[in-house]
């Protein structure tokens, strides 16, 4: 399955482990959250990078003690209109997490930009839409009003832009 990252397709080099079963000795592995809790000690001492797949009913703060050791967090969209993972993603970023944040499940081009803005950087996109559709969808809005979002290159944060200079709006005559 191709992944979308930085507007290009990459292949998934992670090993996805189940709730139980043998783990390979080496290599980067992603485990379900329950397994992370259960096998934290052995997992944290393993060679290779460690990632976790969180549910969208799990609380972000439950990850806080693990975050420094994690290199990938996967958050699911069971349906494209189930928006819980947007909040969890933003919470993780606010907690200082800087590793890979991957959206999986029902990920569609029309929600891509919102996902980027809350801090997702990698997307499990399936094969339904061509890369060009995704690339176009990632930059449909050139501006956002909200502050503190993740943004790339040309995207502007309106309120910050308005108030970087001295306050030119004070000069404008627009009473009434």
């Amino acid at each position: 399955m191709p992944l979308l990252k930085n507007n290009t397709l990459i292949s998934d080099t992670w090993i996805h482990a189940g709730v139980d079963g043998e783990l390979p000795n080496a290599g980067d592995v992603i485990v379900p959250f329950v397994r992370l809790l259960k096998e934290w000690e052995s997992l944290s001492q393993r060679d290779g990078k460690l990632g976790v797949e969180l549910g969208n009913v799990d609380r972000a703060e439950a990850l806080s003690m693990f975050l420094p050791r994690l290199s990938a967090v996967i958050l699911p969209f069971p349906a494209f209109n189930d928006g819980r993972a947007y909040s969890i993603a933003r919470q993780l970023r606010e907690m200082g997490y800087r590793g890979e944040l991957r959206a999986t499940g029902n990920v569609l081009p029309d929600q891509l930009q919102l996902m980027l803005q809350v801090g997702f950087d990698t997307f499990d996109i399936g094969e339904r839409f061509p890369l060009s559709t995704w690339q176009q969808a990632s930059k449909q809005m050139s501006l956002a009003y909200q502050r503190g979002l993740f943004r790339r290159g040309s995207e502007a944060e309106i309120w910050t832009e308005r108030h970087t200079d001295a306050e030119p709006w004070l000069e404008q005559p627009h009473a009434g």
Binding site: G83, Y86, R90, L114, V118, M141, A144, Y145
Partner: peptide
């Protein structure tokens, strides 16, 4: 109005 317009976190409540 501005803050809520296309708020990325709160568009799929």
């Amino acid at each position: 109005r501005q803050w809520s317009s296309l708020h990325p976190e709160f568009s799929y409540l």
